[in-house]
Design a protein around this nucleic acid. Structure first.
Lengths: 243, 243
DNA sequence: CTGCGCTGTTACCTCGCGGTTACCATCGAA
DNA sequence: TTCGATGGTAACCGCGAGGTAACAGCGCAG
């Protein structure tokens, strides 16, 4: 399953960084961990996470000023972490604009819950259709339906239906790949890009896995897999989806 | 005499909590009062009320985000309380999905009236009532009947009947899980989501409890438990109910 | 206290997904 | 045409996700 969000951990203790990276990673978050303000700015230059987990007490530039910096420059969620005796600062931190707060030593599960809560708030408006929190019972309809050639793809239920309405079973990998294509029509996507977009890994030369994935996907969505029209091969460049 | 309904008061002011507990209690409501978001979640883990009375201005996680949380996780009524000068937020609160709204300082009688109104709507209408199990028999509502494959599920009495009308015994856990599925058809539900929706706890990696629950439920509702069709496995994503 | 039923944990097994390898087809440049 | 480069895919295989049996712990009724 795709990552539920990206988090940047800022803490000077390497043990804590390792622990959090592993724990949060296992729970489906994409984690980056750095040790201080300078490294944080570098990381932000690489990409903006949904949430920053920020230690209040840091050598050098302290957490509050980093918080102020984040609030000025970026629109993201911030969860502050403070040492044991520093609960007094709670009000200060929150008034500064942190979205939530947790004191060391913390229960990993509680931290996760708070992060998720902030993440929901952050992702709520901007990002792509995460389950819109409708009031009451949701209608029985699945998510968005997208037509793919003669087939129809249900993004909510991960299901593909052919022209006759018969369901074709898709594996997780096939769905991810097809989804990427649907989201990037008429663009040549390199193998590298395809691997990144399906959150798999980096591509290395002579990696044929993408080709296999394409072949397997074509067998399911192309009317005539021998002569593919939907998912085109662009020689020495990659593949392209043309609706 | 039995309580006419259960209400959870979330307010950081102890005086207000005391006052409301007494006043609403005297008027036949079963009241629980807590001081913030964390305590609210704890209280919800104990049992789901009919209505939550939610202060908009709270230290820490503010009322709006709690409202969003409630709307995502539970089917219950929400009445927002705001401070004097905050009437501007009315629209925001209601658009967020609060069922009603009242401004401090309020007349207790008016508050009670609004709560009762929301409570009627919640208890009478489409919203569920898991809590009937613990509070004993609530008005003998005929309970909605939902068909699940060849079976039929009575949401009011927590009973499941097979094609021949024979009753199949369901444990509490099995009912909760099945109910969640019925309320979210054709959606892939992650293990994490399933656990929170059944009011259990957070999920941690390698937690197999959900799998066991699924297996046990399948044995009861699937015509052929070997080849499940109703409750489908979505590899590396979760499970999905397809009616 | 005792027995019982519910529920989570552990452990083991199974199976299918997805990647690697290998070989062939095809394309493009000489 | 020839030859290297590129892509298609058949076949194999390792591993990890998921099913579930068996056990343990717990709450509860008697």
């Amino acid at each position: 399953m795709s990552a539920i969000g990206r988090i940047l951990v800022v803490d000077d203790d390497p043990d804590i960084r390792d622990m959090l990276s592993e724990y949060l990673g296992l729970h489906g978050l994409e984690v980056t961990a750095v040790d201080g303000g300078a490294a944080m700015r570098d990381a932000l230059a690489q990409g903006i996470p949904d949430v920053v987990l920020l230690d209040l007490r840091l050598p050098g530039e302290d957490g509050l000023s980093l918080l102020r910096y984040l609030r000025e420059k970026h629109a993201l969620g911030v969860v502050m972490v403070t040492g044991a005796g520093e609960t007094v600062d709670r009000i200060v931190g929150l008034e500064m604009g942190a979205d939530d707060y947790i004191a060391k030593p913390f229960e990993p599960r509680e931290l996760l819950a708070r992060i998720k809560s902030v993440m929901r708030r952050v992702q709520g408006g901007s990002l792509s259709s995460i389950q819109t929190a409708t009031t009451g019972v949701r209608g029985g309809t699945g998510g968005d339906r997208v037509s793919v050639g003669a087939c129809s793809l249900d993004l909510g239920s991960h299901r593909l239906f052919d022209a006759q309405g018969e369901e074709m079973m898709l594996t997780a990998m096939e769905f991810d790949l097809l989804k990427v294509f649907v989201e990037h029509p008429n663009q040549v996507l390199s193998r590298d890009r395809l691997l990144t977009l399906t959150r798999n890994r980096e591509w290395e030369p002579f990696d044929r896995s993408i080709d296999i994935r394409i072949a397997r996907l074509r067998r399911k969505v192309e009317p005539d897999p021998e002569r593919p029209r939907l998912i085109r091969t662009v020689r020495s460049a990659g593949y392209m989806y043309v609706p």
